[in-house]
């Protein structure tokens, strides 16, 4: 494991703890420091990925190791971008640990030599996997926001103005953040699947083979499509939307591991 990658992981761990500390003690300074540390980690991580790209000549999304690391990077990236608009300060307490976990697992995974495909095929493969990783990151955040929504909804319904009620933001803010994440994730997922089909056609000469992995990919897409459709058509929001977002991500995770481990 490279020095820079180690430093990245250290930054992520520190900022994860910092965000937890912010939830507990509600000191803005702790939040600001965690945010800065996360930015530093993210920049280092970006550096790691650029180095990897220069060394291997491909975007690091081929092996599970590369994908997990890139996934962690994308989750942080999407979070940092969302943060500039929504100021969901407590979200960091879930996002940072998730990304940290992904990166730590990546760091202990074996690093197989990836055989490079011919240029044109490689391009499609990169686009296919790259968009999917970015989409997954957005959906991961949507899922975490959904969890926060469910907690806050419960405290308000149960009339418990305690720990979470004060610390979590309003239902409206959580709902819109989740929605924004879905809106970002869905086109990426769609494009990822389409480019996958194109890639399959190129490599195998057959774009659809009733592989369970393919079937699950389509199921994932359908879950999110249904959720978004209901949202737009009848204003599906709140608790049910949050649950669907979480379910959608679980299906997505399953599909993801099916592809890499199956």
């Amino acid at each position: 494991m490279g020095l820079l990658f180690g430093f990245t992981i250290a930054c992520y761990i520190v900022s994860s703890l910092g965000y937890q500390g912010y939830i507990l003690f509600q000191k803005r300074l702790v939040y600001r420091i965690s945010n800065i540390v996360l930015w530093v980690g993210f920049i280092c991580h970006t550096g790691v990925m650029i180095t990897q790209y220069l060394e291997s000549g491909h975007i690091p999304v081929y092996s599970l190791y590369e994908t997990l690391s890139t996934f962690g990077w994308a989750v942080i990236g999407v979070f940092l971008i969302l943060q500039t608009k929504f100021h969901l300060m407590v979200l960091g307490a879930l996002v940072a640990p998730l990304a940290t976990l992904a990166v730590i697992i990546a760091s202990i995974l074996p690093r197989p030599q990836v055989e490079l495909a011919p240029f044109f095929q490689g391009l499609w493969r990169t686009v296919h996997l790259g968009t999917l990783v970015l989409g997954n990151a957005a959906f991961a955040i949507a899922c975490l926001v959904g969890i926060l929504y469910l907690i806050q909804e419960r405290t308000i319904k149960d009339k418990k103005q305690g720990f979470f009620f004060r610390r979590l933001p309003s239902l409206k803010l959580l709902d819109s953040t989740g929605y924004a994440s879905l809106i970002v994730g869905f086109p990426l997922l769609t494009f990822g699947i389409i480019s996958g089909i194109v890639y399959a056609q190129m490599v195998r000469g057959q774009f659809w083979s009733w592989d369970p992995r393919e079937i699950f990919a389509v199921i994932t897409w359908l879950v999110y499509a249904a959720l978004l459709h209901e949202r737009l058509a009848v204003g599906w929001r709140g608790k049910r939307a949050a649950i669907m977002t979480i379910v959608g991500f679980l299906v997505l995770l399953f599909t993801f591991f099916l592809f890499f481990l199956g």
Partner: peptide, 20 residues
């Protein structure tokens, strides 16, 4: 920091639901 009157508590709750 936190509401101690009924009407203020209602406003605080409203904010937790509607944000604004």
């Amino acid at each position: 920091d936190h509401a101690v009157s009924i009407s203020y508590a209602a406003v605080e709750l409203g904010r937790k639901i509607f944000a604004e």
